[in-house]
Every structure is written in structure tokens, then in C-alpha cells.
Amino acid sequence: MRQYVIAAALMCCATRVEAYEIEDERLFGPPNMPVISVLSTTDTDVFAPVIEAFLAAHPDHALRYVAASSQEVFRAMRDEDAQFDLVISSAMDLQMKLANDGFAAPIVSAQTQALPPWTKWRDRLFGFALEPVVLMASKKAMQGLVLPRTRRDLIDLLRANPDRFNGRIATYDPNISGAGYLFATQDARQTDAFWRLAEVMGRLNAQLYCCSGEMITGLENNELALAYNIVGSYAFTRVQGSDDLVVIELEDFTVALVRTAFVPRNAERPQMGAELLDFMLSKTDGQTTRSGGAALLPREQAALPPHVRPIRLDPGLLVYLDRIKRANFLAEWNAAMTQP
């Protein structure tokens, strides 16, 4: 009997050790009030203004904001039964899988009903911001070169100037970043040029990062010349006040990511989670404004510039999450990255 108890305790501890990793946790509002818990991939500082505005309208609540990577958010929800009232993530595929597999509660409100159909999946998953995935460059590093306008331009540029770009081009590591994997798979789905680009980047010893922010820092520090697939909200925020950085939306196509949120089925305060969701959606007044770098969702997809291709919220997203498909894709990618 004793052994079982110890075993159970050990297992418990083991689970504890394996618990999802968080990047930041902050409590907003008065500490002795009922707490709304939010799990999100967005950096706390970026999201703080929304939280403060929401709490101003709900002074009788506090809000615990937990920031984590998209993979960790997915793991927390699927494997660890973590309790949150709202889950926000930029990894649409993982959010889609969670919703498909029944982790999201149905939410029906005037706000969610009013959403254009392409920005939500059933009454479970709701898009609240559209962000293009862009190329960023340092003007200093690009001196004397024409900024690329398409992927073909970019490939030519990299091939033509191997010395200048060797070790100075960066992109996400899809092995560790959920968002990076999503962007890479969507690129691969859109064009065969993606694999050529990957090979060129591999030959130039591309630096692989976990996050958009660190790539931009690399550009700022002059360690990098180009960063491929940067999330729009970070790019547009950081480019302000910098006379060196430049944001490029590639014209052959620019994948646009829909940030999505859902209220988990095991939420402690689903009502409050839904209210925060409504609050976030109410800012979506149909205008494509770039406040804080993220484009709010337009009513009609046709209102977007023609090169912007939003990722659709549909079960197609599940395909690249298939373990075999994922393993094949990553194997291909890694082969492209590590070349003799």
C-alpha cells in the first residue's frame, strides 16, 4: 500500500515537473476580487492595454494573464487540463485542433453572431485580429540592394549576395515554434518556391528562432539583415521609431494569421471569459486599422489587399498536425536547413 502512495506521489510530482512552461504571469486589477484567468501567446505588454480597458469596465474582477508559447498553450489545454476562462493563441492549427477535439465551449452572443462567417469556426473558435506574416529587413544591412518584393526576388537576392547574408538571415524554427510551423506549412501549401527558399536559407546558415521579438532584436542589433515570417503585430510595433527597420509584405502572397480565442469547456468562469471575448470582438468594427500592429478583421475577405491570404479556419489545418505528416514535413525542412 505504502509503495502505491509513494508511487502516486512520485507520479504527481512527475506531472508537476512536466507541466507546461509559461513565459510570464501577471495579475491585473484588485487582488481580492474574483480572478479571470487568461492563457495567451501574446506578450503581456502588448495585451495589457486591452486588459486594463476591460477591467475598467469590470472593476469587480481581477485578471490573471499567463503568457506561453503556442505549443505550451496547446499542451496545457489538451494534456494538462489547465483551467482558464479564455485561451488566446496565434497558432490557428493548434486552436483548431483543440476546438475540433471538443475542448472549446459553445459561445453565442450578439458579438459572436455578428462576426463574419470566415472569421469563426462554428460557435467555438473566434478570430479577433488579422496579422500579416511579413519579411523584415535592416536598411543598413541592405545598403545598395533593392528590397525584394516577391519570394522569387528574395531567392535571387540571397543567391546573388551569399557573403552579405551568410548567417544573417533568420526565420522561425518550426521544430520548436507552433506559429513558425504554421507559417512554414502554409507557405509550403501556397507555393513550391518555399522549398527553394528553405534550401537557399539553409545554405546561408539561416538562424532559427523561437519568436518574432527575438528576430527583430537581432535586426536591431545588426546581427541580422533579413528576418522571414515575422508576425505583423510585432513588426509594425517595433518598426515605429526605428529608422533602420523596414517591413515588407511580399506581393506574390502574404499569409495572414487570424488570432483566435475560445472559452475552454472546463473554464471556472466561462461567463467572464465570454465577456472578455465579447469585449475584444467589439473592437472589431469592420475597419482595417493597424492599431498596435494587428489588423482588425474586415467584414469581407474581399476588402483585404489582393496579396493578403488569410489562413482559413477549417479542418484543413488539422492535416499538418498529423504526426506522420508533421514528421515528414520537419524532416524535409531540417534536410533543407542542414546542408554540407
Binding site: N100, D101, G102, W121, R122, R189, R312, D314, P315, G316, L318, V319, Y320, D322, R323, I324, K325
Partner: peptide
């Protein structure tokens, strides 16, 4: 090779949830 468009279309009619399973021999491979 699961086709993205196939899955995409299956969900198109009523935004239905989708599940799949592939068994080879006696074990589930994905």
C-alpha cells in the same frame, strides 16, 4: 499524405468536426 484540400472541403458544409484514424496491420499509425 493527407490532402489539405480534402480535409478543408469536408468541413465546408456545416463546419463539421473531423476525426480520422489510419491503421496499418494491427496498429494505429496516425
Amino acid at each position: 499524405d493527407l490532402a489539405y484540400s480534402t480535409f478543408s472541403m469536408l468541413g465546408a458544409i456545416g463546419q463539421d468536426r473531423l476525426f480520422y484514424r489510419i491503421d496499418i496491420g494491427n496498429s494505429t499509425v496516425t
